[in-house]
Write a protein that binds this DNA or RNA. Structure first.
Length: 485
RNA sequence: GGCCCCAUGGUCAAGUGGUCUAAGACACCGCCCUUUCACGGCGGUAACGCGGGUUCGAAUCCCGCUGGGGUCACCA
């Protein structure tokens, strides 16, 4: 057990995002590799947008991905509570400390005043930043403002003319001038701390040694460092990983399509595919291997091999990985996963009997090679559920118009009628002998059968199709086409 | 706009001054396997943004430019 302590600290304002999941994964991998502690803390200080529902969604997504946590919400731990709204008294205590030491001061400006100030600054072509005018209010001023009913926020007094250097594990040294940082709010007028303040207090109290998070937080880091210094606390190590971008190279958002883990789960992606994919987005192993289990990732992961440049979310690669894991999975698991999709499509209803399950398993076995995600299964199995079959296009119709077709189909029907059970081996046996018996080429025999049975010119192995369809359906479909001829 | 980050094929990326006439993967194309499609196997097309330096030598170091991104909230 090393001293490494890392955390994933989502704000529960929506489902777990792809980017958030990757941050969680990197933190988790780092902790597991170092024998450290992985903590999940909920940053719900945005009362307006936070919800327990989102929190649950996020936690469930983490569990689904296989990322378990040692301390945090729901599991507890020595540094709790792990929900920021339950730590309010802790923040109050430290806010007071900052106020007393002169690092913080109350600001009575209204949002309107601030907006006007911002506009004026902008109009003059200057940076929109808080002027710090409440910094030098006298006691009387404050009393007067309070009597007017104004509820102050607490601002941090940013020292002028200092350079703050972030020692970042992936980016190296990044320096910021405090001249570019306005006095930022640490406690809102309703007494709730802001992000920058709460993270510092919590990370310190939870003994966080490494802060691994997305690059969008890099420019917040100097503010946080200022806070660490004001308190006289040691800084953790920082590691800012680059963003995941959409196809248009801007930060992934809703308009880029599915962005939450939940959505991918619902589309039939496997957690191991997502984990593998996310790990490869921004991190790369030395070698040429691309397929990794969670355990292998724990072995090989390292912050040194995390790339600095942003990565574009490549659905094609996710699909390839998912297809790979689908082909790798056990048939039982795939069948279980496929059932909801088949139910939603109306192919099966109610419970599944053991007999049905055996058939479904066979169905999954015959179409799994086509799948890139489980949701696609419906596209490939419709032919087995349709009451009747129509040639899907001109090509298919042309196949059935062939001269020898009636002969081929009735020969097959004849054979099928003679067997009692139509398992795959039986079907294969019948099929195999057919061309020779009819004196025709394989294509001349199999293609018409395929079209008669499925309406399509492409599809799974014929013997599998026949076995899955069963005697009755095979005979009726064959008969229907023969009758039409 | 200020500040900050980034820059190798369409995409993910290896590469840390010479072994780079630049790896691997996805996608794409071709061939093979095969009754079809898919799977699988084999092969191919395709990249160091631009301009200056430094150096005997630069994808690798420095500067500038360009391009992209992030951030400047009583959101996190």
């Amino acid at each position: 057990m090393s001293g490494v302590r890392v955390r994933f600290a989502p704000s529960p304002t929506g489902p777990l995002h792809i980017g958030g999941a990757r941050s969680a994964l990197f933190n988790w991998l780092f902790a597991r590799q170092k024998g450290g502690t992985f903590i999940v803390r909920i940053e719900d200080t945005d009362l307006e947008r936070s919800s327990r529902e989102s929190e649950q969604n996020i936690l469930e997504a983490l569990r689904w991905l296989g990322l378990d946590w040692d301390e945090g919400v729901e599991v507890g731990g020595p540094c709790g509570p792990y929900r920021q709204t339950e730590r309010l008294s802790i923040y109050q205590q430290y806010a007071r400390q900052l106020l007393e030491s002169g690092w913080a001061y109350p600001c009575y400006c209204t949002e309107e005043e601030l907006a006007a100030e911002r506009e004026a600054l902008l109009a003059r072509g200057e940076m929109p930043r808080y002027s710090g005018r409440c910094r030098h209010l006298t006691e009387q001023d404050r009393r007067r403002l309070e009597e007017m009913g104004r509820r102050p926020v607490l601002r941090f007094a940013v020292p002028a003319g200092e350079n703050i250097t972030v020692h970042d594990l992936v980016r190296g040294e990044v320096t910021f001038d405090t001249a570019g940082i306005g006095d930022f709010i640490i406690v809102k007028s309703d007494g709730i701390p802001t992000y920058n303040f709460a993270v510092v207090v919590d990370d310190h109290h939870m003994g966080i040694t490494h802060v691994i998070r997305a690059e969008e937080h890099l420019s917040n880091t100097p503010r946080q460092i200022l806070l660490y210094r004001a308190f006289g606390w040691p800084e953790p190590q920082f590691a800012h990983i680059s963003l995941i971008l959409g196809q248009d190279r801007s930060k992934m958002s809703k308009r880029h399509g599915a962005t939450s883990i939940e959505q991918y789960r619902e589309m039939g992606y496997l957690p191991e595919a997502l984990v593998n994919f996310l790990a490869l987005l921004g991190w790369s192993p030395g070698g040429e291997e691309e397929i990794f289990t969670l355990e292998e990732l724990v072995q090989q992961f390292s912050l040194e091999r995390v790339a600095k440049n942003p990565a574009i979310f490549d659905l094609d690669k996710l699909n390839w990985l998912n297809g790979h894991y689908i082909r790798q999975s056990s048939l039982d698991r795939l069948t279980e996963l496929a059932i909801p999709f088949l139910q939603k499509a109306g192919y099966i209803s109610g419970g599944v009997t053991p007999e049905q399950y055996r058939w479904l398993k066979q169905l999954v076995a015959t179409v799994r090679d086509y799948l890139t995600s489980l949701s696609e299964i419906t596209r490939h199995v419709d032919i087995f559920f349709a009451p009747e079959v129509e040639p899907e296009d001109e090509e298919a119709r042309a196949v059935l118009a062939g001269e020898e077709v009636p002969r081929v189909l009735s020969a097959l029907a004849e054979k099928v009628r003679t067997v009692s059970e139509l398992d795959e081996d039986t079907a294969r046996g019948i099929l195999k002998k057919l061309p020779k018996e009819l004196g025709l080429g394989a294509r001349k025999v199999y293609l018409p059968i395929r079209v008669a049975l499925t309406g399509r010119t492409h599809g799974p192995e014929l013997y599998q199709v026949i076995s899955l369809l069963g005697r009755e359906k095979v005979l009726s479909r064959l008969g229907r086409v023969a009758g039409a001829c």
